[in-house]
Computed example of a mutant assay.
Amino acid sequence: MTRTVLLAIDTSTEYCSVALLSSDERHASASPPIWSRHDATGAVSSARVLPAVRELFDEAGLSLADCSAVAFGAGPGSFTGLRTAAGVAQGLAFGLGVPVVPVGTLLVCAESARLRDTTASRVLAVLDARMDEVYWADYGWDAVQGEWAVLSRPSLAAPDALVAPPSAFTLAGNAAAAFGERLPVASAAHVVDHEAVPHAVPLAHVALRAYRAGRTAPAEQAAPEYIRDKVAQTTAERLAARTVSNGELAR
């Protein structure tokens, strides 16, 4: 079989994002056709995922039996959302007898930035992690390999603790909009791409490269990558954060 049909699912944010990509291995360099849904669902993405999957297969004129692999946004992101994507991907992959392709959501942000601007070869991906912190990672595009190199692994930090890369870079993700001046690296960025956030379309592109390279996993190994162990702030931490915020507004 020369065709790869890859289903990609991301529910790491308030969106339920699903994409279906069909690639002919005989024309691997060509841009493959892709169908997608990206719906604002809040905390109820689980109710939208499977209907969206059915819609895309119908729209593409394909059946679930044509699926080669199921990719999912592994994290970091919403705890509930990550479990939703991993669980749905695992269930579908089990039923179809195909592998899963876990993809980091920060890497998806980098790929999203590059899809809109092919000159984006150094990307600092930073997402609002809530609780006054950010998820971040640093990536460099290897044009020879046609892959992203991980320069700094996904981590958790205070927004003002990030250090800008030494060369020109694109800041991807929603952290600049969420934190404003409290994210100093934004002012050092060559480009700030607020739209480079987790989305199933760039996820599918990353996953296709991973699939072709054999970087897949059995369905039973589908699992989220949380980075943070703590789900919520304590009452004292929330009050302290509110006091700091009020103090900043007063100035």
Results as ranks from 00 to 15, higher is better:
P159S: 13
N246R: 15
V103E: 00
S17H: 05
S22Y: 09
P218H: 10
T84G: 02
P218C: 06
E55S: 14
R54C: 01
D128L: 12
L21F: 12
W35K: 04
V191P: 01
A176Q: 05
H194V: 10
E147V: 11
V88I: 15
Q233I: 01
A157Y: 11
A71Y: 13
A158F: 02
T84Q: 05
E195M: 10
V185L: 06
A157C: 08
L151A: 11
G77N: 00
S155K: 03
Y226A: 11
V103G: 05
A189T: 12
T243A: 15
G81D: 09
I9T: 11
S152I: 03
Y139C: 03
F179P: 04
A200F: 12
R209K: 15
A207D: 07
Y226V: 08
P202H: 10
A222E: 06
T11W: 09
L56G: 00
E220S: 12
R48Q: 09
P184Y: 11
H27Q: 14
A176Y: 00
S112K: 08
G81K: 02
D132R: 15
D132G: 03
G140T: 09
S12W: 08
A172H: 06
R130A: 07
A217H: 12
V144W: 05
V191K: 01
V244K: 12
R122H: 07
A200C: 09
Y15V: 09
E59L: 13
A110C: 11
A186F: 07
I9V: 14
F79S: 09
A178Y: 00
T118Q: 13
L21K: 05
A200Q: 06
T80H: 07
H27P: 00
Q233Y: 07
H27R: 15
V44F: 10
W148S: 02
A71C: 12
V126H: 07
L20I: 11
E237I: 08
A47Q: 15
F79V: 06
A207G: 06
P202A: 13
H27G: 03
L96C: 12
D132E: 15
Q233T: 05
S187F: 10
A19P: 07
V101L: 06
D160N: 11
A60H: 02
D128V: 10
P218M: 09
S112V: 02
A172D: 10
P154K: 01
V185F: 06
T234Y: 08
V100D: 09
V123L: 11
Q145E: 15
P166S: 14
A196Q: 07
H190I: 03
N174P: 01
A69W: 14
A43E: 11
L21W: 04
V108W: 10
T2E: 02
T80N: 01
G75C: 07
L124R: 00
A85F: 12
F169C: 04
S152C: 08
A161C: 03
A178S: 15
G87E: 08
V192N: 00
Y211T: 03
W148G: 04
A161W: 00
R238H: 01
R209M: 04
F72K: 03
E111L: 03
